[in-house]
Amino acid sequence: MIQKTRGIVLHQLKYSDSSLIVKIYTELLGLQSYLVKGARSKRAAIRSSYFQPLTMLDLVVYYREKNNLQHIREAEITEPLYSISSDLRKSTMVLFLSEILVKAIPEGEANKEMFAFISSSLRFLDMQERGVEYFHLFFLMKLSLYLGFYPAGMPGSNRSYFDLREGKYAGAVPSHPDYLDKDLSANLYLLSRSQVGDLENLSLEKQQRNELLNAILLYYQIHLSGLGAIKSTEILTEVFY
C-alpha cells in the first residue's frame, strides 16, 4: 500500500556501503523503520541529509503491516529548521530529545495529538531566542502527558513531596528513595504548569535546572522500563550546565 504522511526523523543507522536504516515517527503510521537504499551515494534520489535528527518530512511510503522494514518512495523536507541546524545549543538539544523519543515511543502506534505537539514544539524551538535552556525540560514534561504519566495534582501545605513512582504529590516523605524534596517538587510543578511562551521568564539557576533534568530523566526511567541510559545527556550537560 502506498501512503502519504508527514514524518519526524528520530534516528539513522548506516547500512551496507551506501544505505541507511531510518526510524521515523509518522503522523498516520506511528513509529516505523525504513530502509533507504543508496541514500549515502552521490546520485541518491533521497539524500542522507534529509535524515538528520528531528527533521520534518513529507513522505510517500510503501507500507506493509507485517514488515519490520518499510520503504520510502519520496521524501521532501517540510519545514527547514534553520536556527536548529546552526545553533550549537539547539542542535545538541535536538540530539538529546531524539534519543529519548526513539526509545519512548512504541513502534507502530499512531498518535496525531502527540505528532502535532512534537511538530509545533520544533517550530517554536527554531524561532526561540530566549529561554532555550529550559526548552528540553518543558518538552519532556509535556511529552509525559502523551505517554501516559503526566504528574497528577499540585503541591500544597499537605502535599510537598513529588513521588516519582506514583506520579503525584505526597504529604509525607515516601518510604522509598524515588521522590523529590520540597524545593525540587515546587520547581517541577512550576515547569509542568508553564506554557511554551513562559520559558523566557523562568529564572532557575544552573544547578536547579540540572537537578530538574536528573529528576525528569529518573521519572521517565521509572515509567518507561525500556528507556535505559540516555547517552547524549553528557553532551547536553557540557553545553548547558
Results as ranks from 00 to 15, higher is better:
A186Y: 12
L212I: 11
F149M: 12
D181N: 15
I105D: 06
K66A: 12
N187R: 15
N201Q: 14
L31A: 05
L95Q: 09
Y179F: 05
Y82P: 00
V94W: 01
K182W: 03
L190P: 01
D163M: 03
G171F: 01
G108D: 02
K14S: 10
I230L: 02
Y169L: 09
A75E: 13
L125M: 00
G7Y: 00
K90F: 00
A215S: 09
S18E: 06
S19T: 12
F117S: 06
E113P: 11
I21L: 12
S86R: 14
K66I: 12
Y150V: 12
A215V: 08
A229Q: 13
Y219Q: 03
L236P: 12
M114T: 11
N67L: 08
V36Q: 03
K182A: 12
S225Q: 14
M93V: 03
L218R: 10
I77A: 11
F51A: 05
K14Y: 03
R43Y: 08
R193E: 14
Y150C: 09
Q208G: 12
H11L: 10
Q207L: 14
V173D: 08
I105V: 11
I222Y: 01
S19D: 15
S86H: 14
F96Q: 04
S120A: 14
L20H: 08
Y25C: 10
A104T: 11
G156C: 11
H136S: 12
L199Q: 06
F117M: 07
D178W: 02
Y150N: 09
K231L: 14
K23C: 11
Y169R: 04
A104P: 06
L81W: 00
I46Q: 06
A152G: 05
S157A: 10
F162N: 03
T55D: 08
Y63K: 00
P53I: 02
L35Q: 01
L202D: 04
A215F: 03
